[in-house]
Design a binder for these strands. Structure first.
Lengths: 340, 340
DNA sequence: TTGAAAGCGCTAACAC
DNA sequence: GTGTTAGCGCTTTCAA
C-alpha cells in the first residue's frame, strides 16, 4: 500500500509518530523491541516517507546537482557516470542539468538546481569558469548557498572546491616528447578556450618556445565546428596545409580532434606516424577505433571523480577540505607516435 | 536576499500570502495592479519559493526520473541528452539514476526515483524488460504510481508507454541487402538479449533463413566482454575464424561491435568490404572514426526521444495517448559495405 | 479580487 | 525510551 503517512504507521504500530520518525532516521534512542515492531509495520505496508515533507523539515533532500554542458560528450558522459555512482554509494541522488555552453543558460541551469535545494552543485567540465570575474558571479552566488565543486576547472572563491588534472604539464610533456622524437613543426589543434583549454595550450606553447619552434601563429589551429564532425576537423587541417602550412606532428586538445588529424592524414596519403605523428587527449574509447591506434593523454578521470566526491563528502560533514587538488596525467603511447 | 518566505513577500507587498501564491502560480484572479506590486517585491528580493513546501502541497515537483543502465554508453548518453533538453523545454527537471544492468539494482533505482516523487519515470534503453513477467513487476508497480515511459523497449501494462525503433525490420533489411550483394556467410555479432537485442537477432535470422543460409549456429556470435574493449571483440572473431568458421560479412548489434570486426579484419589482413563486409547499428560517432567508414543503421534516436516526450506531456496533461509507437530505421551506407 | 485558515507529512525540541 | 507539539513554506478551499 502506498501513500501512507507516518501517522498511519504510528497507529498500526501502536506508538507515536516521533518514535516512527526515530526508527526511520536510525536514532539510537529506541528500544530494540519497539524498533522491530515499527519496522515490521513499515515493511508490511511498504511505507516510504514523503520526501517533500522530510525536505521541508531538514531543508535538504540528499540530492546533489550535476551540471555539464553536454551529457552526450564522451568525456563528460563518463564523468557523469562515475560521479553518479559514487554519489549513490554515499546515499545521495543526483539531479542532472545539461546547461549548454553559453553563460546565460548556465546561470539559468544553476538557478534551477539551487531552487531544487540541492546540497551541493558539481560543475563538470572546464567551461564553467570565465576570464572575466563578473562572468563567474553565478558561481560565487551559488557558493553562498551550497558548496560548489569544480571538475577540471579551478576558481578561487569561498566554498568553491577545485579538482583538476595538470593539463599544462601533460601537454608540455607530450609536446616535448614529440620534439625529442625529431619533429619540429608541430601543430596544435584545439576547440576550447576554457580554463583547461588555456592550460593545455600554454603547455604546448611553453614547450615549443623553449625550443624556439613556435615560428608561426598558424601552428595553433582553432576549430569551431561540431564536436562530432570528424570530417570537418580533417578538412580544416587539409586547408591549412594547402595554404602552405607545414607540420609533421599534431597535438590535439581531445581525441575527437586527433581523429580529425588521422582522417586528414589518410585522405592526404600521409603515413602515420612517419609523415604525421598525432597525440590526442582523454584516452577515450576513440583511441582504439582508428588505425593506427591513437596515442593519447590519460587525465585520470576516474581518480578525479573519486577525489571530488571524497572532498564533497568531507565538506558536507563539516570538515576542512583542500580548496584545490591537482592530479597529473599520463601519456599512453600507441601507434600514432614513435615509441620512445 | 535569499531564504525569504512567502510571508516576507506578502508583508513587503502589503498583501496576504494567498495573493502572493496566486501571483506565483499565474492565477488570473489577481488585479494587474496588485500583481505588479507583488512581482516587483519578488524581483527586488530575488525571492524563489521553497520547492519542498511547494511539493508538499502539490505532491509534485515537476521532476521526471531518468533511468539508464550506464550513462557513459555512447548511445544512452545521447538519449539522456535529448531527453533532458526536451524535458527542460517543457518545464520539467530530471533526476538521473544509473541503474546498472542487474535486476536488483534496477528495482532499487526505481524505488529511489519513486520515493523522490517524480511525476514519471523514463526507462532509457531496452534492457529493462525481462522475459519472465515476474521480473517486470517492478515496472508494473511503478506504473501504478506514475506513468512509465520506455525508450527502445516495449511492454504492455497499464500506464506504460513504449516508443521503439523497428529493429527487426532494420536488421532484416540490412541482412537481406548484404545477401543480395552476394555474401552468403554472414556472421551476426551481438552482446545483448534485451527486448531490442532479440528483435535485432530475429531480423537477421529471418532474412538468413528465408534464403536458406543459416547453416551453423556459430554464425551467431555472442560477445560478453566490456562494451568498450574493441580488441576483445576483434579477438573473439579471430578465434571463431581460427576454429574454421567462415564468414565474409558481419552484421553487428551496435557500432562498437562492428568496430571490433573492423579491427579483426585489419589484423587478419582482410580487405573491407571485399573480404569482409561490415554493418553496425546506431549510426554513432564511431562510424566516422575508422577506415573505411562504417555502414550503420540509424534508428532515429532524436525522433524517438521527441516522440517520447510528446507522449509523456500528453499523458501528464490527462490526454489519451498511444501505448506503443514504432518508428523505422534507415541504413546509412558507408565504406564497409558494397554500395548498392 | 482578496484574505483567513486549514492542511500537506515530516523533524526535532521539549516534556514525561 | 517514548509521546506531545510546534513549526517548515506553500497551496487551496471558503468567506468576505
Amino acid at each position: 500500500m502506498t501513500n501512507m503517512t507516518i501517522y498511519d504507521i504510528s497507529e498500526k504500530a501502536g506508538v507515536s509518530i516521533a518514535t516512527v520518525s526515530r526508527v526511520l532516521n536510525g536514532s539510537n534512542n529506541v528500544s530494540e523491541k519497539t524498533k522491530k515492531k515499527v519496522l515490521d509495520v513499515i515493511n508490511q505496508y511498504e511505507y516510504t516517507p514523503n520526501a517533500f515533507a522530510r525536505g521541508l523539515g531538514l531543508n535538504s533532500m540528499n540530492t546533489i546537482g550535476l551540471m555539464c554542458a553536454d551529457s552526450s560528450d564522451l568525456y563528460l558522459a563518463k564523468a557523469i557516470y562515475y560521479i553518479e555512482q559514487l554519489l549513490r554509494a554515499n546515499g545521495y541522488d543526483s539531479i542532472l542539468c545539461c546547461s549548454g555552453y553559453d553563460l546565460e543558460s548556465k546561470e539559468k541551469a544553476m538557478d534551477v538546481l539551487i531552487s531544487k535545494k540541492v546540497d551541493s552543485v558539481i560543475l563538470i567540465g572546464s567551461n564553467y569558469i570565465y576570464e572575466k570575474d563578473e562572468d563567474n558571479k553565478y558561481i560565487v552566488d551559488a557558493a553562498a548557498q551550497v558548496p560548489v565543486m569544480l571538475l577540471n576547472a579551478a576558481f578561487d572563491a569561498p566554498n568553491v572546491y577545485s579538482i583538476v588534472s595538470d593539463d599544462f604539464t601533460s601537454m608540455y610533456e607530450a609536446t616535448t616528447q614529440m620534439i625529442h622524437s625529431g619533429i619540429s613543426d608541430i601543430l596544435y589543434f584545439y576547440n576550447s578556450t576554457s580554463y583547461s583549454g588555456k592550460r593545455k595550450l600554454a603547455g604546448y606553447r611553453t614547450a615549443m618556445e623553449e625550443h624556439g619552434l613556435l615560428k608561426s601563429g598558424n601552428l595553433m589551429q582553432f576549430y569551431s565546428g561540431s564536436h562530432e564532425d570528424i570530417h570537418a576537423m580533417g578538412s580544416q587541417l587539409e586547408k591549412a596545409a594547402e595554404k602552405g602550412l607545414s607540420f609533421h606532428g599534431v597535438i590535439a586538445a581531445d581525441d575527437n580532434l586527433a581523429l580529425g588529424a588521422v582522417k586528414y592524414a589518410q585522405n592526404a596519403g600521409l603515413r602515420i606516424p612517419e609523415d604525421l605523428a598525432i597525440v590526442g587527449y582523454n584516452n577515450s574509447l576513440l583511441t582504439t577505433c582508428c588505425t593506427p591506434e591513437l596515442t593519447s593523454i590519460d587525465n585520470k578521470l576516474e581518480t578525479l571523480c573519486q577525489h571530488l566526491i571524497t572532498t564533497l563528502m568531507g565538506v558536507l560533514t563539516g570538515n576542512e577540505m583542500p580548496k584545490k587538488t591537482i592530479f597529473s596525467g599520463e601519456i599512453i603511447s600507441r601507434g600514432t607516435t614513435f615509441s620512445k
